[in-house]
């Protein structure tokens, strides 16, 4: 699981640099329509503050946009991309919709479950590295089975490819963490 130290570090406020990015996004919308920036800011906040939207993070975003906290909760709970609870370091979102199912997404989901030693979709591996989620059609139906991890799509999945992916992400985590 995420260590206390890590979660402590990943809390509001935004760095000056991120704040500038956020202000830039707000300016994309007409005067008084700043709420339009909400979804994009939530994506950024999630990325910045530990991969999920804590109530604290959401209240902070509400403050930036000068809207009521409930307006943020309503939105954050409506859209499935936002994590409302802490996750593993990497979230595998496997598409489970019809076209992917036709080419074997169920088997891939089962395989990942076994590999991670978890019993249900939504759970995180014991080492806190991977969370398995399912997603609805991600617009890669011709290249299934597929999964999304962060911004990255991984297509034409096979058990071997899943193994390689996990190694790749583990290595990525180790290398970024040994740098600092």
């Amino acid at each position: 699981m995420i260590s206390t130290l890590e979660t402590q570090a990943k809390r509001p406020p935004f760095s000056a640099e991120k704040m500038e990015e956020v202000q830039g996004i707000i300016k994309q919308f007409p005067e008084g329509r700043h709420k339009s920036a909400l979804l994009r800011i939530l994506h950024i906040a999630e990325e910045e503050f530990g991969g999920w939207l804590s109530p604290e993070t959401m209240d902070y975003v509400a403050g930036i946009l000068n809207i009521k906290p409930i307006e943020v909760y309503e939105v954050a709970t409506f859209y499935t991309m936002f994590n409302l609870e802490p996750t593993g370091k990497f979230v595998f979102e496997v598409c489970r919709t019809g076209p992917c199912m036709l080419v074997g997404s169920d088997d891939i989901i089962e395989y990942i479950k076994t590999k991670l030693g978890i019993s249900k979709v939504g759970e995180t591996s014991a080492d806190g590295m991977f969370t398995l989620k399912t997603a609805e059609c991600l617009g890669a139906c011709g290249y299934g089975p597929m999964l999304q991890c962060g911004k990255q799509y991984h297509e034409h999945l096979t058990p071997e490819k899943v193994d390689a992916l996990m190694d790749e992400y583990r290595a990525k985590y180790t290398s970024t963490n040994s740098q600092n």
Partner: peptide
Amino acid sequence: APGGGAYICGEETALLESLEGKR
């Protein structure tokens, strides 16, 4: 402007609501 994971936002008026930062 990005959505956040909702097929219904492909429906044009839901899309506009979403673009206004709402459900």
